[in-house]
Amino acid sequence: MSSFVAPYKGKPAMLALFIDPHQLVDAIVALREQGYRGLDAATPFPVHGLSEALGMGPSWMPRVTKTAFFTGATLGLAFQLWANGWTWPINVAGKPFFSVPASMPITFECGILCAAICTFYAVFIAGRLYPVTNFELLDSRITNDRFALFVPTGGQNVEATERLLQKLGAQEVQQLG
């Protein structure tokens, strides 16, 4: 969802700004109870309980890291086995060409390297992050000191929504679209 990017091009909606993260979470719960759907929130720091209030499942990041770690480690081990045990065996002080303990450091580092790079890019893919020169948020204070709530108003009474948001503690309410 890119509902917080200016200029707004989506369906009619409302943007409510709160100054207190607790009010934001309470407002989301109240709005969902009243049948509002498609809510989204943007905050200056990770607010605990927010993803649960919005009904998000667990993040899929751990699966990326786990898979990448074991893939990287396996490739690292296989490469050492192939290079030193098969294609270019060097006799160093009569030691075995390939032995598991001596290959553990590099196996481990390959796993970590792969896990780190994949986790890093997974966050970029999950949040659709990419570099642009002229990014504008709907309100520049969302990354500073305001907690923004995005409420699609399709099929809802606009005035009633606005009154409800104000009652829930919103400092400012603005219509979008």
Partner: peptide
Amino acid sequence: QRWKGTAADWHH
């Protein structure tokens, strides 16, 4: 990188 700070962004 177009960071918006949405709930999903922070979640991941």
